[in-house]
Every structure is written in structure tokens, then in C-alpha cells.
Design a binder for these strands. Structure first.
Lengths: 259, 259
DNA sequence: CGCGATTTGTGCGCATCTTCACAAGCGCCT
DNA sequence: AGGCGCTTGTGAAGATGCGCACAAATCGCG
């Protein structure tokens, strides 16, 4: 995974326009690159050297035209008539995402969810290293989780500095989240992943992404409600119900609905 | 969600827009309603009876015009010159989201993450009840978590039927996720929240939402990379760096960077 | 009873995102 | 060498979403 991106100038011919490599990608594209990356690693492990846009698009669950346009923003790394070089594309995407070196991440809040996140192998496998755990509860400080020890949140500044942490995860109750965010920012953290169900207010220049598990379920609930209304009401809707409940025998060509 | 059909006229009356209670909300609106709902409950607990679009928009972290447009899709539940009735709005949103009755949810995969999700209070507080836990590992079957007992996944069909489960959460390793999804669909589940880092293929009519924790971090990593490039390069960029790292003393009026 | 202050609901232009469709490029085969 | 089939990269059209700005509606007050 820690493959090196091609040398600054050597190797491939000069990047079109890529001055210091900052293509200013559309947000929608950025959000999909990690999915492509995961699919590419999977392909690489299966022994594929090249892949067509159609093949990669399938593996990533998107439309092939969209995938090509996304990749075109990174530069021209495909070969017409052939496809994309899997290894090269992995390197390029990892470079753009800033994953050429493993990033240190702090995790604040070692409760129910925090414990699970601290032990989640998916982070370690995909470019990150949980470098420090924090909690405000003195009863939890000192606890060992994996090969880390829970620190008191007052020690945040020193550890952020020492470990070179720029990204933090908040897994505290909502009531504590804003205060924690303030302290993280004060300590120098510039990106926050927030699992607490609340809105965070942070200074300009700090990025916040939010994951709210209940919200995801509520969105699904809406669609359940809608499906129920559609199959119950329309007189000609009987076919709809049959299709819904009966379609299970053909799990093949369905569509996964993402993000 | 599940595939819009571009062919408007033929086939089903797809454009029939308004089923009595079904406003055909834009997806973007649906995704925000839960956030409004959370903010409204918070306001209600603080004793507010009414709230202006500006106030609610602040609490939910969105633009007030956007909020008004979102709510207008539900109908006219505001009073000009006054604002929105908090209680009424809560009822309306909960109805549209299908939360008027607590929904039963199945959780498959009682590993690291699954344990945390099973114990997550946020589900219970916001319209859901985890009604059954499943795992494929016989070593885990029978384990007590909260007041539930882990069932073997072979018992899925009976319990889905008995508990009236329409929504399921997948918290298994990626390698098992597709197979689990197939079995869920076969058992009658029509909405899936997938925590496994892989693309699920499901029949039409089944909704899938995906939460990939590593992807969220990778998106943040991209922005970190970009910020680093921007502050390192421009000669006059010293100011930018100062602003970034030094802005901590004024955590007040900042903006959360979303979506 | 009418007026001004306030706030909703929405029309409209702009931006972003998606999808189609096709020319240009590449490798292979004859 | 030349033609042929395959795949990329992209222009353009369409869809969706966003936010401004303002008319319409309501309340409270003199």
C-alpha cells in the first residue's frame, strides 16, 4: 500500500499543466476516488495488471462515463484500446489523496463506539494509524486498547505536536463534541471526522465531515415509508409489490445505491 | 433512489407525482430532514414553541433559504411573520420519514463494530429498535448483548418475519457482506445500511446506503494534502499558514465545511 | 383599522454534477 | 502498411441542487 508515487519529474512525461500537482478536483470526484482506490487494490490482488473503465466502474459501483471523467481530472493515465494500468492508477490516486505516507490520527472519546473505532482494522489497512486515544473521564485514562494507552484530553496539545497529528476523530457524546472540537483546533488539528450527532462550528480552514448513524437509518426509513405507500395505494400498483418482494431470486444485476 | 426511469410516459405513471401523502421529495432534501428533526427535538427540549427558518437553519448548520425550500416541499407548516411551530414540524417530519412507529432493525455481524452498534443509544433514541442480532460464527451465537441474544444467521428468515423487520445493518467483514445481503433480501429486507467496505449488488426495489469509515478519512486526507500544498507553495502564502494554524483563538463564528 | 415589522414561500439565474455520444488514439492482425 | 476493433477522453445537453432576492402573508401596535 505504501507504494511511492512517481518521482516529481522523472518517469512519466510531463503532466499537462499540473504545476505542483493540484488539479482542484470537483468535490464529487474526490468523494469517489477512495472507492476507486479500494476497487483497484482488490483488482491488483486478483492479479489484474490493467482494467477498462467499464470493469473498474462495475467494481466501484458507478457509471463508466463518470469514472472516466473523474480519472481524466487526474491526468491521462489510460491507454485507448487497452484501459488503465492498475498499479499506476493506484499510485496516482494515493498521491492525490495524500496517502503516500501513513497519516497519524487522534481518536477522542473511548466509549462504546470509540472502542470499536480504535480496533477497526480498516483504518490501518488504508493509510492511517491511530496514534493517540483521549478521553475526559479519569476513570478511562490509562486503559490499554490494542497497543495504545488512553490519555487524558488535557494532554492533547503535546501529543498532537509530538505525533504530527492533523486529523482527529470525535466519538464523544454530542454534549462534549463542540468543546472537544475547539480543543482539537487549538492543538493544531485541521481535519475532523465527527461521529457525534450535532453540528460543529469550527474556524475557516478546518474541515469537518460528519457521520451520523441514526440519520442513515432515517433516510432508509423514508424510503421504506415511500415504498409502503406506493405499493399500498395505487390500484395498478399490485405489480410493483410483486416486483419488490418477489425479485429476490435474481440478485444479479441490481444497483447499489450509494452516498 | 432505486433507479429513476427516464422514460416518463410509458409504463407506470412514474410522474404521477403526488400520491396523497407523498410529496416526491428531492433526495438532497430527504438527506437533510433528519438533521432538522434532531435540531427540532433539541429546541423543543429547550422550551421553544416556535422557531424561525433562520434559527432552525443555524441549529442544523444550513442556509435558511435552503431550509425553507426543503420544508416547503412538505407543505405549508410555517406562519409568515412568526416562524414554524416546533411540535407540528416534528410531527410532520417524523411522519414523512416513517418514524411514527418505532422500526425494527436487524444487525448482522457482531464483531468489533457490530458490538458498538448494538449498544449505540442513538438508534433507540431516534426511532429504531435493534430487534435481532445475527452472526455466522457459531462461537458467537448465544452471546448476550444488552437484552438480546445473538442468533445464527440461518434463523434470519423466521426472525425477520416474526419481528416485522424491513431494515438491516451489515457490520460483517467485506468478504461476507454480499452473501449476507443476498440472504437479507431473500428474507424480505428491503433496506440495508452497509458498513462493510465493498459494493453490494441488490435487486431493484431494495435500497442500500453505505458508510465507509476509511473513505471519510481519505477524503479528509485529500483536503489536508491540498492545504499543505497551498500553504507551502505560494511565496506570499506565509499569511495563509498563519491564518490556518493561528486562527485557533477565535473558534466562534467559523463555518463547518460539509458535504 | 391600518401600518410597519417580520418571516415565509418561491421564481429565477447560476453552479455543479451526470449522462450521452462520438472523435481520437492505440494495439493487433493480416 | 493499412485497416479494424476496442477504449479512452471530452464536448454538449440535461438534471439536480443552491442561494439570492422579493412578493405575499401574518402579527402587533398605535
Amino acid at each position: 500500500m505504501s507504494q511511492h508515487h512517481p518521482g516529481p519529474e522523472s518517469g512519466t512525461p510531463a503532466r499537462a499543466a499540473a504545476v505542483p500537482d493540484f488539479p482542484d478536483l470537483p468535490e464529487a470526484t474526490v468523494a469517489r476516488l477512495p472507492e476507486y482506490l479500494r476497487a483497484l487494490h482488490h483488482l491488483a490482488e486478483s492479479g489484474h495488471d490493467t482494467v477498462s473503465s467499464e470493469g473498474l466502474a462495475n467494481a466501484a459501483g458507478v457509471n463508466s462515463a463518470k469514472l472516466r471523467k473523474d480519472l481524466s481530472h487526474l491526468g491521462s493515465y489510460g491507454t485507448r484500446g487497452v484501459g488503465y494500468d492498475v498499479g499506476l492508477l493506484i499510485d496516482q490516486i494515493e498521491f492525490v489523496l495524500g496517502l503516500t505516507q501513513r497519516r497519524a490520527v487522534a481518536l477522542v472519546g473511548v466509549g462504546n463506539l470509540g472502542h470499536a473505532l480504535a480496533g477497526y482494522a480498516g483504518f490501518a489497512n488504508r493509510g492511517f494509524r491511530i496514534s493517540a486515544l483521549f478521553d475526559a473521564d479519569p476513570g478511562r485514562v490509562g486503559e490499554h486498547i490494542g497497543d495504545l494507552v488512553v490519555q487524558h484530553i488535557d494532554d492533547l496539545p503535546e501529543l498532537v505536536e509530538a505525533e504530527g497529528i492533523a486529523i482527529a476523530v470525535i466519538a464523544t457524546p454530542a454534549s462534549a463534541a463542540q468543546s472537544v472540537a475547539d480543543r482539537l483546533v487549538a492543538a493544531g488539528v485541521t481535519s475532523i471526522l465527527n461521529f457525534a450527532p450535532c453540528v460543529l462550528s469550527v474556524p475557516e480552514g478546518v474541515d469537518v465531515r460528519k457521520v451520523d448513524l441514526a440519520i442513515e437509518l432515517q433516510i432508509l426509513s423514508f424510503h421504506e415509508h415511500r415504498k409502503a405507500a406506493l405499493t399500498a395505494l395505487p390500484t395498478r400498483g399490485a405489480a410493483g409489490l410483486t416486483a419488490l418482494r418477489g425479485g429476490l431470486s435474481t440478485p444479479g444485476p441490481g444497483e447499489a445505491v450509494g452516498t
